[in-house]
Design a protein around this nucleic acid. Structure first.
Length: 594
RNA sequence: CGGGACGUAGCGCAGCCUGGUUAGCGCGCCUGCCUUGGGAGCAGGAGGUCGGCGGUUCAAAUCCGCCCGUCCCGACCA
């Protein structure tokens, strides 16, 4: 591995191919419009810094231009992704962004996908969409050209612009509508073979995010009603993350909040069942109000929620201090659509306003969270305005169809694997691997003949990485008050060379020579040749987040030395000119894992 | 889609409530002088359909209506 790292450093042509001609490395010629002030539209750090550092500009809501610096970072991420995908045996393809509706109708998603799918018509009035993902296209490709078990397994990926018409784009590159994604799809003869592919992808992903210099965690995720099998998300840990990750402090269990299993400690209340009593509870609707009114703990209140699903209305019972987990409920009921019932439905089913619903006398199927099992003498709505019951005992009073894990895990719940304490972390999802199974291969007849001449559908897997999102996530995780602190592997340049006195001939020649030597040594160097005061250059340098800075001026040159500063640690060292190239090469190399 | 806010020069904002000079300020930009180790100073300058359309009025950035766009909270999210 180390050998390849050296090879990379020894090949400046690789870099030239990213940026083109050498003159791009001159700050005065680069389109690098930095901003002193924070654009008002940006709320999160990464969004603010991406704009301020001149890396992106907004064209429309959730749609961004990538300027030269931003593109360089994007290319860095792509390069790492490519290397690791190829190393893991995947092959790169490039599929169309515009896709015909027929394919989506074939898989059934044309109906299901909803408004997030950007649809349009061509001049012949034929329906198309801009691909938000490419299962249909890849399955179509494979079914036409792969027919034998001898051609499997097959693992194809692409790095491409996607479009999802998000309800609410936000946080700049973190949740854009147009974004760049690596999506990969695998085809195997059966699930056993697919498991191996999954493992290989999981490992490749771990290497990718490690090489990007990110602090991340892989967590168990919900695989939806399709897979049934496992699925993992890769989360970059950051305060501003949109997702909540539950992680065990003792063992290596970690899961998405939605997926995290709850194991209920058996509550052994051997209270004798009290008689059912109806209580007048005027203007008392919320759990907190009821608890207050009846002078009991929220844990002793039975919360009854009505849900509308594509299979009809159901009731869900929870302890008053617990929250329902929609994903778990959806999976249990095996429904696609699920929504909390509106006032009208509640009135129809319970005969009362929202806030007075209870399980007694309900005609709809009742599902209860497992933590309610065995609890005695609870308070619940009476299905009558301004009334609640006390002394409710589910075993005695209610026909519960099924007890199940239906609630959101809390910080006080134990780890479902080892029983130790859990911690809640925030993360940004940058990768997702999961088994698709036969969903698409069956719907679209992607089949092959096995060794016995039997026709069988291929077992598919799907693997995504948010390439542009990684750029933002890296910044969320690596910044300070002065700007970005790029991990070396993602930095747009390794070294920033700043000559301090433009009119001093010796300074300029030395800087120019240093720039050339560093470049020849395989380092990527930005040469700040602007006629600006030093303070301006320092501020911009810090903002851009280039890992190492070399400042050259008459003062240090008199000692045949230059000042090298580490962006992250802010440490400075005065080093002999002769040692600069070597020193910087070592520092950069130390920051790049392969 | 529901709730909230905003739209005035490239960026950040004031002016609007209480209609009436030539629509201001800071940053950035251009020219010159000066300065050169943490976003200097002085002088001069360019840059505006005040988001759009319509209405009220002698007169609209300002009041009213509709539309468009943007951001925040929520519901939603392979």
């Amino acid at each position: 591995m180390a050998v390849e790292g050296l090879a990379l450093l020894a090949r400046p042509d690789r870099l030239a191919s990213i940026c083109g001609k050498e003159h791009c490395m001159r700050y005065s010629k680069l389109l690098l419009p930095t901003l002193k002030e924070v654009p008002s539209e940006a709320e999160t750090v990464s969004h603010q810094l991406l704009l301020r550092a001149g890396m992106i500009r907004k064209l429309a809501s959730g749609i961004y231009d990538y300027l030269p610096l931003g593109l360089r970072v994007l290319r860095k991420v792509e390069a790492i992704v490519r290397e690791e995908m190829n190393r893991a045996g995947a092959q790169e393809v490039l599929l169309p962004a515009v896709q015909p509706a027929e394919l989506w109708q074939e898989s059934g998603r044309w109906q299901v996908y909803g408004k997030e799918l950007l649809r349009f018509r061509d001049r012949h009035d034929r329906d198309y969409c801009f691909g938000p993902t490419h299962e249909e296209v890849i399955t179509d490709l494979v079914r036409r050209d792969v027919h034998s078990y001898r051609q499997l397994p097959l693992n194809l990926y692409q790095i491409q612009t996607k479009f999802r018409d998000e309800i609410r784009p936000r946080f700049g590159l973190i949740r854009g509508r147009e974004f760049i994604m690596k999506d990969g799809y695998s085809f195997d003869v059966d699930e056993t073979a697919a498991d191996q592919t999954y493992e290989a992808m999981y490992d490749a992903y771990s290497r990718i995010f490690r090489r990007c210099g990110l602090r991340f965690k892989s967590v168990e995720a919900d695989s939806g009603p399709i897979g049934g099998s496992f699925s993992h998300e890769f989360m970059v840990l950051a305060e501003t993350g949109e997702d909540v990750v539950v992680s065990c402090i003792a063992c290596d269990y970690a899961a998405n909040l939605e997926k995290a299993e709850v194991v209920s400690a058996a509550e052994t209340g051997n209270e004798a069942p009290a008689p059912l009593t109806k209580v007048h509870t005027p203007a008392v609707r919320t759990v907190a109000e009821i608890a207050d009114f009846l002078k009991i703990s929220p844990a002793r209140i039975l919360k009854t929620l009505l849900y509308e699903t594509d299979q009809g209305v159901v009731a869900v019972l929870l302890r008053g201090d617990h929250e329902v987990n929609d994903v778990k409920l959806k999976n249990l009921l095996r429904v696609n659509e699920l929504a909390l019932a509106g006032e009208a439905v509640v009135r129809r089913e319970t005969g009362a306003d929202v806030g007075f619903a209870g399980p007694l006398g309900l005609q709809v199927p009742i599902y209860a969270d497992q933590s309610l099992r065995g609890l005695a003498n609870l308070a619940a709505g009476a299905n009558e305005d301004e009334h609640h019951y006390t002394g409710v005992n589910l075993d005695r009073d209610v026909d519960v169809r099924q007890y199940a894990d239906l609630r959101q895990i809390t910080a006080t719940d134990p780890c479902p694997r080892c029983g130790a304490a859990l911690e809640f972390l925030r993360g940004i999802e940058v990768g997702h691997v999961f088994k698709l199974g036969y969903k698409y291969s069956q719907a679209m007849q992607a089949t092959f003949l096995d060794a016995n001449g039997q026709e069988r559908p291929m077992f598919m897997g799907c693997y995504g990485i948010g390439v542009s999102r990684i750029v933002a996530a890296a910044i969320e995780q690596n910044h300070d008050a002065d700007g970005i602190i790029f991990p070396v592997p993602l930095a747009p340049f390794h070294v920033l060379v700043i000559p301090i006195a433009l009119q001093d001939e010796q300074t300029m020649t030395t800087a120019q020579t240093l720039y050339e030597d560093l470049t020849a040594a395989g380092l990527e160097v930005l040469f700040d040749d602007r006629d600006e005061r030093p303070g301006v250059k320092f501020k911009d340098g810090d903002l851009l987040g280039i890992p190492f800075r070399v400042v050259l001026g008459p003062k240090t040159l008199a000692q045949n030395a230059a000042e090298v500063r580490d962006r992250r640690s802010r440490t400075m060292a005065l080093l002999p000119l002769a040692s600069l190239v070597n020193e910087l090469r070592q520092r950069v190399q130390a920051g790049i894992q392969t």
